[in-house]
Amino acid sequence: MELAQGTQGKRYLMYISQNYSYAILRPLQQQIRTHGGEVKWFLEGSEVNPDFLAADEHRLHSIDEIKAWNPHATFAPANILPTFFPGKKVAVFHGFDAGKLNSRGKNDHFTIRGCFDLYCTQGPNTTGPFAQQAKEMGFFRVRETGWTMLDPLFSDIANNPYKSEADTRPTLLICSTFSKRLSLAPQLIEQVKQLRDSGKYRILVQFHPKMATEIVDQYKAMQDDTLTFIETDNVIPLLQAADVMLCDTSSILLMFLLLRRPVVTFNNQAPGPHILNVTEASEVEAAIDHALTQPVALMQEIEAFCQQLHPYQDGLSSQRVLAATNDLIESDGKELKRKPLNIIRQFKMRKKLGYWRF
């Protein structure tokens, strides 16, 4: 049976507030269009760049336009979404659970904020916690689909701009989250210079878009024929180009592991046998060199971890998300309880969006 059956004639809204969300939702957009559905985009806030919209991607500029268009469903790679939007609200996640803890020592990845009708989870280790909460709360569905952003990960990209046939050195990709408390970027500036100056690696650097400007500028100043700083709305070609990653607690490391390639982390908050974690700057280079040998025990741990994180390598996660969404639309989620009002949160959303009509 066609996974995306029932898409014909339906309207789907893509709700984004960060540039990286384009790459999360475009594989889903492709499936919707292929199966006869219509897609439009709503860009919330100042941190998403409208210039990244393609010529054939259509934007709605206001809540009134959204209500007039009346989407059947809205997809959001975010933690919250206005409940006053028409149609079903579907969470597709902006990353994996990387074990980050908030200031209260809690993992926000599994927090239910009463905004969504459907959570499309990435693999067994996230499906379980969400499914348990769905059973307890009763106002949303959970379906394990895999992650839309990864559909292209399992296909070779022709003419990948980050690969080099001429440079045979191993490619090191350095990524970091923006949180001062968790980020390796400010702590490893001197070590990265040493890695560059060693000449052993071809180095690509890519940071979270919220990284402090002064840190970004320091890394941009390091650029030469060995180290390149990259700003992009699509990290998949970068991941495919690298042999090893140096990271901290950013969830991007989990995407890289799914390519069955090793990751070295610096002060990772959730270290495990599937990564090589170091706690001293002086240990970084040796750990990278060890990772490049792809030790058998480490690679076995990576494989076991990936089976729990995201077992799908068929590139069909977007089709599964679309099928789960269409099923929710067709059934109207009649078994679900009414979502909590969340008056304070929705007031804040209305204030943020400048919308007060009811």
Rank of each mutant, 00 (worst) to 15 (best):
A304H: 06
A297S: 09
V284C: 11
E301C: 05
L298D: 00
V284K: 04
A291Y: 13
T279P: 01
Q307I: 04
I288T: 04
A287Y: 10
E283V: 05
H290A: 11
A304W: 00
E303S: 12
Q307L: 11
I288R: 01
L309N: 04
L298M: 05
H310A: 15
M299K: 00
Q308I: 12
A281E: 15
M299L: 08
Q300I: 04
C306A: 08
A304K: 06
F305Q: 03
E283R: 09
E303N: 08
P295C: 02
E280L: 13
C306D: 06
Q300D: 12
F305W: 06
E280I: 14
E301W: 04
A291F: 07
L309Q: 00
A297Y: 03
P295F: 08
H290W: 13
Q308V: 11
Q308C: 13
T293E: 10
M299E: 01
I302D: 00
I302L: 12
V284M: 07
I288N: 00
L298R: 02
E280Y: 14
C306R: 03
H310P: 15
E285D: 11
I302G: 01
I302R: 00
E301T: 04
T279N: 12
D289Q: 14
E283G: 03
E280G: 08
E285Q: 15
H290C: 12
A286D: 13
L309F: 02
H290Q: 06
Q300Y: 11
A286P: 05
I288C: 01
A287W: 06
H290P: 02
A291W: 10
L292D: 00
V296L: 09
M299F: 02
V284R: 03
L309M: 10
A291H: 07
E280D: 15
L298P: 05
E280N: 13
A287I: 11
P295D: 02
E283C: 11
Q308E: 15
T279K: 07
M299D: 03
F305P: 05
T293H: 07
A291S: 06
C306L: 09
P295K: 03
C306Y: 06
T279Q: 08
A297M: 10
D289F: 09
A291D: 13
Q308Y: 09
H310V: 13
S282T: 15
L292A: 08
A304T: 07
H310S: 14
S282Q: 13
Q294R: 15
Q300T: 11
A281L: 14
L309G: 01
A281P: 14
A287C: 14
Q294I: 12
A287L: 10
I288M: 05
V284I: 13
P295A: 07
D289I: 09
A286S: 08
F305C: 06
E283M: 14
E283F: 10
V296P: 00
